[in-house]
Design a protein around this nucleic acid. Structure first.
Length: 419
DNA sequence: TCTGGGGTCCTAGGACCC
DNA sequence: TCTGGGGTCCTAGGACCC
């Protein structure tokens, strides 16, 4: 058996923990740059606010119903996520962190426990310890555990925990479960399946295996098997190092000045390199890209990227930054208004497997020690206490009009309680 | 006026090798 | 006149996830 612990409306729930006056009111949280709605309270969902819509398209609705709006506060959400994870770890030997608001729990070998009671207990404990409501679904496969956790959200009677294992129960649930809510079935497959008259998860399980494989490949077949209670998506306790690391942002105002753009890109580069070192990797390649606003029809559109290869894999911010800024010079076009830029690191190798070169001119040991010191200082004293001089000192040019305090990570933002 | 930011896996087809 | 058989690697594109 596997469990999925899924935080309900996670970003909104984080805001509510420190601002209980928001309970019962419609609340939404925006993406970076205050662009789109990425988290909604149940009240906001009921008002018809869709996931991912740009804020400006629902402005009227927001005003009419006095929907409370927040910019995304990832420092807060990251910290709350860590607290939930730590609570989960106290219940099971192994958890797989699937995303900022979801984790799978390995319950293999725990079948003699009352798993329904356990699920409810986990949910209640998370709420008590962190203030975040969590839905815990337990089932024989990961895909069915996802189904079960969704049931918790639909039926408050379940008190946050649902154990779905009897074949008859599974069949009953799948018969009313919309196909597009199944994990692994996205928009394209939904369209194809609906055209075949498959509207529920149950109907999908009734197709033949070869037909499913032909239409949706091996991944589709896995989903099909999982819905039929045959576990085939592995439980991954340790998350493997990333094969790509990307840092990119949209800007609040378009940038036409090469130097100014360089300062932003330089900062993305430093952020990406920090992530790279954190997972103990070096990279062979780096890519920088810049683009103009694709939504603007009348001004010149431009997307450009360039790839840099390093002879010897590197994780030095200095080396990568220099190469990236040179590359940026080559692709930058004057008279273009750039709306977004990013840096991607690729072709990773572990620190321990770096192939050196006889003709290397860089003192890599010196860079390594310097980067280690920089990371340590920044970790202790806060983000970009020490930075490359080409980096922007003002941070990212980003709208964050509705930002909440950093309640849990900044002394001055900690809530004061009056006695 | 205003439109996010990260990732992964799989497959088909082309280039190339012997 | 006739024109093999087996393999690998790489890339782009398409699907998916949160």
């Amino acid at each position: 058996m596997f469990a999925l612990a899924d935080c309900n409306n996670f970003f909104v729930s984080c805001e509510r923990v420190f601002n209980p006056g928001l309970n019962g009111r419609p609340v939404v949280v925006l993406s970076n740059n205050d662009g789109c709605i990425v988290s909604r309270s149940n009240e906001a969902k009921k008002l018809g606010i869709k996931m991912g819509v740009p804020l400006f398209q629902v402005r009227e609705l927001v005003q009419k119903h006095e929907i409370v709006v927040f910019s995304s506060n990832y420092v807060l959400y990251g910290d709350m996520s860590r607290r939930v994870q730590e609570t989960l770890r106290t219940f099971v030997p192994a958890i797989e962190i699937y995303s900022i608001d979801e984790a799978f729990l390995d319950l293999r070998g725990m079948e003699h426990f009352d798993l329904d009671a356990l699920a409810k207990k986990i949910s209640l404990t998370c709420l008590r310890h962190t203030g975040i409501p969590v839905s815990v679904g337990v089932a024989p496969t990961k895909t069915l555990a996802k189904v079960a956790s969704k049931l918790c959200k639909q039926y408050p009677k379940l008190r946050g925990g649902c154990y779905l294992y009897k074949p008859a129960d599974i069949e009953k649930v799948l018969k009313t479960y919309p196909i597009d809510d199944v994990w692994g079935i996205g928009r394209q497959y939904t369209k194809k399946l609906r055209a075949l008259g498959v509207g529920t998860a149950y109907e999908f399980t009734q197709l033949s295996a070869p037909r499913v494989q032909k239409m949706m490949g091996i991944t589709g077949l896995r989903t099909w098997k999982e819905l039929r209670a045959e576990a085939c998506i592995e439980f991954m306790q340790a998350n493997p190092p990333k094969q790509q690391i990307c840092v990119s942002r949209s800007f609040s105002k378009e940038i036409s000045d090469c130097k100014e753009l360089g300062m932003q890109v330089s900062m993305f580069c430093a952020m990406a390199c920090e992530k790279l070192r954190k997972q103990n990797s070096h990279c062979h390649q780096a890519l920088v890209f810049i683009l103009t606003n694709p939504h603007k029809e009348d001004s010149p559109r431009h997307f450009e990227s360039t790839l840099i290869s390093f002879q010897v894999p590197t994780s030095s911010t200095l080396e990568i930054n220099r190469a990236i800024l040179q590359a940026l010079q080559r692709i930058f076009k004057p008279f273009c208004a750039y709306k977004k830029a990013g840096v991607v690191l690729m072709e990773m190798v572990p620190d321990s497997a770096v192939q050196g070169s006889l003709f290397d001119e860089l003192d890599r040991e010196k860079h390594r020690r310097l980067m280690k010191a920089v990371d340590k200082i920044n970790q202790k004293n806060g983000y970009s206490s020490v930075a490359v001089a080409t980096q922007s000192l003002e941070g990212i040019k980003m709208n964050r009009r509705y930002l909440s305090p950093q309640y849990t990570t900044k002394w001055s933002d900690i809530i004061k309680v009056k006695v």
